[in-house]
Write a protein that binds this DNA or RNA. Sequence first.
DNA 1: ATTTATGCAAATCGTTTGCAAACCT
DNA 2: AGGTTTGCAAACGATTTGCATAAAT
Lengths: 156, 156
Amino acid sequence: MGRPERDADQLHREVRDRLKGADQIYTSGRQRLIEMLDESGRPITIPELLAPHPDVALSSAYRNLAVLEQVGVVSRIVSGGEHARFELAEEVVGDHHHHLICQSCGRVDDFTVPSSVERTIERALAEAASDSSFVAESHRLDLVGTCGACATATGT
Amino acid sequence: MGRPERDADQLHREVRDRLKGADQIYTSGRQRLIEMLDESGRPITIPELLAPHPDVALSSAYRNLAVLEQVGVVSRIVSGGEHARFELAEEVVGDHHHHLICQSCGRVDDFTVPSSVERTIERALAEAASDSSFVAESHRLDLVGTCGACATATGT
DNA sequence: ATTTATGCAAATCGTTTGCAAACCT
DNA sequence: AGGTTTGCAAACGATTTGCATAAAT
């Protein structure tokens, strides 16, 4: 059920600082969004995000998530479904992870690979990109398949 | 300028067969789309695709690309830009590749990594996914950065 | 002839934006 | 007060769809 208190406090501090750095205010609405994202623990869509909080305006959610994305505390991931998904940015959470994308229900979960593999991938990518004039900044590695719930509902 | 003739012929045969298998017809409109995609050699948006062919109806392009995607000869990739992008499916072209995504202009190019690395990645992913009840089917590995043209325009 | 694909125009739906009221300092 | 954020409603834009026509078998 969420993460320890001090993590949350630190998270909020970090977000506030980032916003301040961009001359933006950490309003209560934004705070709520950050908390919802933190509780979710995986990339979720805005409808999912707002369902338990009917008083949060849709437009404010979009606007604030855009702001939070610009200051680098939230990242938007697209993955093909009808809604974009949002999660706390890697920089803020302090981990580098990838995504399990369920092609049946659209659910997205985070996962990590051993850092040795991560390094292997990075090296290979750097080399592959060096062929072209492309300047790589980051990579994105997703697994596409069927999540547990959908596999049970279908296969078994 | 495109690929050798016999490849194209084989491509068309393959597409026709796949469509036939789904009780669909390989109409001239669909043939044109396949040719355009083949010539492009990288994932392109529908506007890009149709720009040189103003007589092709937008709705037909969308409809036909959806059909072609369903029978597995075209794949749609999303990557965050405003338009989805389409390319000939790996199954049809016969290679497994990844994408270089320019975050400045949205351009997407294909690239491949050595098969040894590909295997490493696959192994690591299989293991990582085995923790959860997720059933992986394929993976997606993209490099995000700046393409040559945009790098020149900005940095140099 | 009958079935399927096409093109146009209208509808859809996620997301964005204009504007006036509410908020914070 | 002065500047910002919020909420509502309207606008936007990519994609989809209804329907009548054209094409293919």
